[in-house]
Design a protein around this nucleic acid. Structure first.
Lengths: 204, 204, 204, 204
DNA sequence: CATGAATGAGTTTTCATTCAT
DNA sequence: TATGAATGAAAACTCATTCAT
């Protein structure tokens, strides 16, 4: 009937996004019903429409929100870092750290692109390319300067991204290795793969 | 009403599996309706049930069928190959070639595990572990013999698998690079990452 | 494909009737599927149609078969019995004994008339009236001769039939009372209700 | 699409129960489709689910609602009536009058128990036993006090209940006999059966 | 801003029945 | 006679969405 005591529009909207992310992560976009979502946030299904336009708009909001935040954070992490070696190292560390903290966002962004309507999908794909180009640029510069051995820049950058992003699919915060150990390990693996040398920050 | 002249059970069943794989790849398990599937194979929806028990059983059949064939083919590819270097090389080449030919199977096997019912999911997870252990064994042997630098066997094997499997997500048979070029590139990348040396077969 | 070794048309048809009766008793006509029935007799669903015309025809066959046998057996039981007292007594004993042996037929004949198509239902209703008239005739004769107190022949005959037929709904062959005890008890109850006297055959 | 102007939830729910009772009476539980039910109350099939949980829950609600009301009304009818003769007489009159007014409830309660899921059936069976025990108690008391001749209390109470309940299956409100005449006739029949005497209230 | 009742199209699955083999 | 593959209609139920209150 009227507003529940203590409810608050923007808090409700945020709760919807949080629950929506979790439910899409667990059941997929097609597998999440708005009834489930409404129940998760303590509303009737119809009430969701005071906060979202459609189910599809919610998905787009989640996916594009993640991409925006990701790219922005990357730019902050790379700001002021100079030289391909240092920038690659920073990229690897940033990408892993960011993704390990956001298992659900990562999975949804990888698995649910096909559930986006064509226009929405095109927008997201452009954002992804934008992000991936930053790694490709680092690799290209490093190859041009002779510090990396990169037979094919696009393929190599995809390979690195797949390797790093894949970690989110098995990482457990309370597992055998903590995040920092995993990050160190992959910095080494990537750097070694491109240069044959141990990463400089390792002191070796 | 009755059997169409010339219809054949096993051919229909195979057509259902093929169309089911494609539709799940395109729309996801939840996103594929049995109406769509029936239309794709030229049947009425109810007629599907002469060939499958349930929609879930079809998914399990596709996913487990892929895992069985994959493991069997790997064992054939590794048979008689001796030494960690050669075995790793053979693994990379096999895994990539097999996956590049099966974009749809790969995507479905990675994205739709969450749509399997608990028992079915457990069975598939066990099969995956079985496959992954073959790579881990190669890495462990190579590390023990001192030919690989492997700080952590499970993490490294996941990293390699993610890197290789990820190729299927962007590979286009008629793209800029053909399959053999991609395979060569990744053999190098992986081998270099673990040994610091070019792969022996590359002649360098 | 071909006939199963050892199968026999009329034996199969009888098995279908037996299983059909049991399944309709357990689940109702609408609740019994021909798939269930086929499985119960070890056939594929389509094969049933070598033995029955339609599901409805099977129901009619079961229901009308029971009514025919019932009426014929009653006539045999009453043949040569003279006088309203003796005939009523014979009716009660016969009706109870016959119904106690045929729980399933009784229930189906009472509950599934509504599932008969109009023409079939009309035929069965006529057969039931035919059977019931035999009791009504006994009561009318007894009332005319002054041996029964029967304020209303149709109502009283329905009351007696309901009372006797109802026994089949709770009777258990291995229960506390055996069939003969139950029959004796109801002969007494009915006779007492109509005459105020103990039944003559009880020796009292 | 949304709520029809002037629609009212509780009125709709009641209409669903009323139409559901009639349709189950006419076609049986398995034979009633929710499409038919929706049409009978002027809704789309899916809209029924705003008022019922499942088809089975509707059946249980109808059947248990009847049993509750029946038992409560019986207790009211027997309240303050003393002595087995008077209580039996009151029971017969009450049971008949209540059942003659509720042909459909009676039939559904007798025929559709098998369509209840096990737990629901067990609950109804317990309620029935509760009701039947009230008659059995009257008979037992009367037998102990020597006013009734009751060779076997359970069998006799079932016989009386079957006789009385059976009336609902043929009674027509505009038939040859009105309800009061039928009630009088059965009071006499039952009382006579147990005592050999006319009912005291008949003044004879 | 929330509710509850509604829609209409959709879901997976089952059904009685048919008929080429 | 039996099978197995098919039909077309229907089943119970769910869905995203709408809107009067």
């Amino acid at each position: 009937m009227a507003r529940k005591a203590g409810s608050d529009g923007s808090r409700t909207a945020e709760a919807i996004r949080a629950a929506g992310l979790r439910l899409i992560y667990e059941h997929g976009y097609e597998g999440m019903s708005l009834r489930d979502l409404a129940q998760a946030v303590g509303l009737q299904p119809g009430s969701l429409y005071n906060h979202i336009a459609t189910k599809q708009a919610l998905l787009f909001e989640l996916v594009s929100g993640h991409m925006c935040a990701l790219t922005e954070a990357l730019d902050a992490a790379l700001a002021g870092v100079e030289g391909p070696l240092a920038r690659l190292d920073a990229f690897v560390a940033f990408h892993l750290r960011y993704h390990l903290d956001r298992k659900m966002e990562v999975f949804v962004n990888n698995s649910e692109l096909r559930s986006l309507e064509p226009d929405n999908r095109a927008a997201i794909t452009a954002m992804r390319r934008d992000y991936e180009r930053r790694l490709a640029d680092i690799l290209a510069t490093g190859a041009a300067e002779g510090v990396f051995v990169v037979p094919d820049v696009p393929v190599t950058s995809y390979a690195i991204l797949a390797q790093l992003t894949g970690v989110a699919s098995w990482y457990q915060p309370d597992g055998r290795l903590n995040a920092e150990a995993i990050i160190a390990l992959h910095r080494d693996l990537v750097m070694h793969g491109l240069t044959g040398r141990r990463i400089p920050t390792a002191g070796g």
